[in-house]
C-alpha cells in the first residue's frame, strides 16, 4: 500500500519536473494565436476593421473582443479561414466595415502634388517616396492599397488605380464547358457519344507501352511528314519586326535537400 503510494508520488515528482523543464525549454514567446491570426489577415494595414492595423485586430480577435468578419480586404475566404482557426461559425463579411474591392494601388498625380509629406506620414508600409516640397511617388510594388493616404492629401492628388491584368499576373480561367442545345435527333447524338466513349475506354492499355521505360504517355498520329518534304527555307525580310519580352512562365522553386 505504502510502496504503491511512494511510487505514485515519485512518478508525479519526476513527471512534474520533466514538465517544468520542458516548459522552460520549449517556451513560446508571444501569443502564437495572434501570430496565426495575423498570418491569415491580408496585411493591408488599412484599419477598416476599426483597429490601427492588422496586428491589433489579430490581438483583438484572439482576446475575443472583435468578430472575425471585419476585414474587407481579406474577403470571404479570409473570414472562412479565421472561422476555421478560431473554431467559430462562419459569418459573412460585416458590411459596416466596407466591402471587398479589387486590388488597387495608390497613384500620385505628380503635377498636382505640392510635397506636403502628409501622405508619407500616413502610409503604414512606407510605400511613398518623397521629401518636403519635393514631388512624392508611390512604390507600387510595396503599396497595399489601404487608401490611408487619400484622406490626408490637401490637394486630392492621390487616386486608387486598380491593378491591371498583364501576362505576368494573368491566371488561367476555370474551364467553362458550354452547354449546347440538344439537336432534334437525340438518339443519334446519344449513340454517337456512347460509341465514342466506349471506343476511348476500350482503346486503353496497349502492349507496346511496356517497352518504354517511363510510365504512361500516349501514341498520337505524328503528322510529321506534312512539313518534312521541303527543306528549310529562309524567310524574306519582313515588313516590320517586333522584338519583345519572353514569358518563361512559372519556375517552381526546387527545395534543395541539404545533406
Amino acid at each position: 500500500m505504502l510502496t504503491a503510494l511512494y511510487i505514485m508520488l515519485g512518478l508525479a515528482l519526476v513527471l512534474g519536473i520533466m514538465l517544468g523543464i520542458s516548459a522552460l525549454l520549449f517556451k513560446v514567446e508571444g501569443d502564437p494565436l495572434v501570430a496565426r491570426i495575423d498570418a491569415i489577415l491580408p496585411q493591408t494595414q488599412c484599419g477598416q476593421c476599426g483597429y490601427p492595423g492588422c496586428k491589433p485586430y489579430a490581438t483583438a480577435i484572439a482576446k475575443g473582443e472583435a468578430d472575425i468578419n471585419h476585414c474587407p480586404p481579406g474577403g470571404d475566404a479570409g473570414a472562412r479561414e479565421l472561422a476555421d482557426l478560431m473554431g467559430v461559425e462562419y459569418k459573412p463579411l460585416n458590411a459596416e466595415h466596407g466591402l471587398p474591392k479589387p486590388k488597387a494601388v495608390a497613384f500620385i498625380d505628380e503635377n498636382t502634388c505640392i510635397g506636403c509629406t502628409l501622405c508619407i506620414q500616413a502610409c503604414p508600409v512606407d510605400a511613398i517616396l518623397g521629401a518636403a516640397k519635393h514631388m512624392h511617388t508611390i512604390i507600387a510594388s510595396e503599396c497595399t492599397g489601404c487608401e490611408l493616404c487619400l484622406a490626408p492629401c490637401p490637394v486630392d492628388c492621390i487616386t486608387m488605380e486598380p491593378v491591371a491584368e498583364t501576362p505576368d499576373n494573368w491566371k488561367w480561367k476555370y474551364p467553362v464547358i458550354p452547354i449546347k442545345a440538344m439537336p432534334a435527333d437525340k438518339s443519334r447524338l446519344i449513340m454517337n457519344s456512347i460509341i465514342q466513349f466506349a471506343s476511348k475506354l476500350l482503346l486503353g492499355q496497349t502492349a507496346d507501352l511496356l517497352i518504354h521505360k517511363f510510365h504512361g504517355g500516349v501514341h498520337r498520329r505524328g503528322h510529321k511528314q506534312l512539313s518534312t518534304t521541303l527543306p528549310i527555307a529562309k524567310l524574306a525580310i519582313p515588313q516590320a519586326c517586333s522584338a519583345l519580352r519572353q514569358h518563361v512562365g512559372y519556375i517552381p522553386k526546387v527545395k534543395s535537400t541539404s545533406r
Partner: peptide
C-alpha cells in the same frame, strides 16, 4: 503546318509577323 497550302520549315527572324 496544318491547313496551309505548302507546310514547310522556315528560318524566321524573331519578331516576324505571323502573316508573313
Amino acid at each position: 503546318t496544318g491547313s496551309v497550302n505548302s507546310p514547310q520549315n522556315f528560318k524566321v527572324l524573331f519578331g516576324t509577323p505571323l502573316q508573313t
